[in-house]
């Protein structure tokens, strides 16, 4: 019994990582296509129909590129940084529930690696903290001024916005009384989405996630006009590719997290009851996973959309926004949520 369980976990992990890789590949393409549309260009259209195989061609190209590590760089840490970045990005997927459960041949299979982990949100908070190490290490080990400045900026930005991100989730926790993502999703069943009870929390979480992901308008760590490429200036070939992949994997996991916390996760309002789908049936599982992924990718689209619409912040504006605007709003939001629950939910 124990061995089949282990086998199922490893299989699920492998499927999850592969699905993530393919999604990341298409997110890169989507980003380039959407950017092209918004700027009246064509975008990638040479590799396959509509450039559909562009990212795979890019992966092959990156793998065959020469691996250049500057002589002044710290070789081991230079190689370690992408491993930390991608390792953390992949680990985050372990706690995300993509659907409820499905019963196949008497086996109850959870749709997700560990969707019922009781410390899911703490794991996520811890992992986003560890992600800072990858970027700081990449910046420091390269021994290039651009990389170091990019890494420093990134570290300061990520830890600053982690506070408002952590605080914006507290409201959700108060509503659902759990750190378990599956329980949080179940408490939002039938359109009782946290988005409607926590609009400020959602907005704060979204803005902080953009900053955590180093995405525009918070992409100062890789501000091309000032810092060339930021912390990955001195990376080439697949080492660069791994850092890049980790970025896109993080966009997807942040979107999935927002879906789970605020958009009801796998919840499809009223439709399962209307169609009479049994819990545990394959049809319902497909519907749930489809709904979860639709919501997540819609958020990914918004993230891309924001990048190509808004100009970059100045660094002092970024710090002011994080510390002097978002942080007090997040604390006020907690107090407001508390008052709301005490008044209405008793």
């Amino acid at each position: 019994m124990e061995w089949t369980k282990l086998l199922i976990w490893v299989a699920k992990g492998a499927i999850l990582v592969n699905a993530m890789l393919v999604s990341a590949a298409y997110m890169v393409l989507a980003e380039r296509k959407i950017a092209a549309w918004m700027q009246n260009r064509v975008g990638p259209n040479r590799v396959g129909p509509w450039g559909l195989f562009q990212s795979f061609a890019d992966v092959i190209k990156l793998n065959l590129k020469e691996d250049i590590v500057p002589a002044a760089a710290h070789y081991q840490f230079h190689a370690l940084a992408p491993i930390i970045a991608i390792g953390v990005a992949i680990t985050l997927y372990a706690v995300i529930p993509f659907g409820d459960y499905v019963i196949i041949g008497g086996h109850t299979i959870q749709l997700g690696m560990a969707p019922n982990m009781n410390i899911a949100l703490l794991v996520i908070l811890a992992m986003t903290s560890v992600a800072v190490y990858g970027i700081t290490l990449a910046g420091w080990s390269s021994n290039s001024k651009y990389s170091l400045l990019g890494g420093l900026r990134s570290a300061a930005q990520m830890i600053s916005y982690e506070l408002s991100m952590g605080l914006s989730v507290v409201g959700v926790l108060m509503l659902s009384s759990s750190l378990n993502l599956s329980t949080i999703i179940r408490s939002q069943a039938d359109l009782q989405w946290n988005l409607f009870y926590q609009p400020i929390g959602f907005l704060l979480f979204f803005i902080s996630s953009l900053a955590e992901l180093n995405r525009a308008p918070f992409d100062l760590p890789e501000a091309e006009p000032e810092l060339v490429g930021g912390y990955h200036t001195e990376y080439t070939g697949m080492k660069f590719g791994t850092l890049y992949l980790a970025e896109y994997a993080n966009i997807l996991s942040a979107s999935a997290l927002m879906t789970a916390l605020f958009l009801g996760g796998w919840d499809v309002p009223f439709l399962p009851k209307l169609l009479g789908l049994q819990p545990g049936s394959i049809e319902l599982a497909l519907l749930q996973v489809g709904s979860f992924l639709t919501k997540s990718f819609a958020l990914v689209f918004v993230v891309i959309w924001v990048r190509w619409s808004l100009p970059r912040f100045r660094y002092d504006q970024l710090m002011t926004l994080g510390w002097k605007i978002l942080l007090p709003i997040a604390m006020a939001n907690i107090a407001l949520t508390g008052i709301g629950i005490l008044l209405f939910k008793h």
Binding site: V17, D67, M117, V123
Partner: peptide, 26 residues
């Protein structure tokens, strides 16, 4: 917490493979 450990292992192995590929190929 075993799934978490499995996932960390998968992530580390994937990252390591990428880096080794980058060193060997090219």
């Amino acid at each position: 917490y075993l799934p978490l450990i499995i996932m960390i292992a998968i992530g580390a192995i994937f990252g390591l493979t990428n880096i080794i590929m980058a060193e060997i190929l090219g």
